[in-house]
Design a protein around this nucleic acid. Structure first.
Lengths: 159, 159
DNA sequence: GTTCCAACGCAAGGATCTTGCGCCGAGGCC
DNA sequence: GGCCTCGGCGCAAGATCCTTGCGTTGGAAC
């Protein structure tokens, strides 16, 4: 599947404002509403657009503390990984989790109400995740940027 | 500002599907469309909902490689931090960046087309960011979960 | 008991979405 | 070169959806 400059413009616009009306979107990318609607359909069907999310304020929702937690398991059998990952998915405080190469097996981004809440999560949820052998936490002091993907550069006359 | 169970339900629903029509949203949370629309207005105005984003497939857009990069600067004066952060914000391959406590000053999440592309970013964009003294990269092997926030638990009869 | 106010639902006017249709232009094939 | 095919465009209309005004209601404060 290949994306021309209209597709890329649509995705870029919707990444910035996912609730743009089809009409406003069409105007912005330079298409008629019908053509724009059909392209959007196609982008969603093919999976280029996986979905849409509201960006919620962790601050205002009462989770101002962001912690990055590195975790190493006792063993790396696929069974142990799968059990750990299933448990992680069930924990609402874990916003992000990747299996990693390098010194630690996983990196997690955890949202907490305050330090005491994090201590509680640390003890209750994280340490008791299956097979955890080593943990290392760092606190986020300031958010610089936080996007979910990058759109390839749009060549002006492009394809 | 305080959020009752309707507000929380609205935010939860829109985090899952940010393009839900107001009507579908109203139905799901158990309100009339007008009441729902007014609450949504309020959530956006007060900042609880900061905006909406399409979730784009980094895979399909040609950036299948995710790398976590830890960076320490030569010094931590506010001026050095500000210059570094301004440069980071201008780099489209840097999806996420936090100023951190602990061993490293910053953690970055970088999207790359492939290993060669990352090497290029590493050399060209990252190493040449102002004041960088130490860098450490780990590759993501698998994404377990990737949300942007967590909604407080909704007490069934709650406020 | 009364008052007040925030928030609800209903209804309607206006905006918006989507599907059918005809058309155009690029590319493939004689 | 000429023709054919087909993907993709814009236009138009029926259906859907959003929002604002209005009357009402329920709970809290006095």
């Amino acid at each position: 599947m290949t994306y021309d400059r209209f597709d890329l413009a649509i995705m870029q616009a919707l990444q910035r404002d996912g609730r743009l009306s089809n009409q406003a979107l069409a105007e912005r990318v330079g298409l008629s509403p019908s053509a724009c609607s059909r392209r959007l359909d196609r982008l969603e069907t093919t999976g280029a657009i996986e979905g849409y999310s509201a960006r919620l304020s962790s601050q205002l929702l009462g989770y101002p503390v962001t912690v990055m937690v590195n975790i190493t398991l006792a063993g790396q059998s696929e069974k142990q990984l799968a059990e750990f990952e299933a448990a992680v998915r069930r924990c609402p405080n874990v916003l992000v989790c990747f299996l990693m190469s390098g010194e630690y097996d996983y990196i997690l981004r955890v949202a907490a109400r305050d330090l005491q809440d994090f201590e509680h999560i640390h003890k209750t949820a994280l340490s008791s995740l299956p097979h955890v052998a080593k943990m290392n936490s760092s606190f986020a002091l300031r958010k610089i940027t936080d996007r979910s993907a990058t759109v390839p550069p749009i060549a002006p006359g492009g394809l």
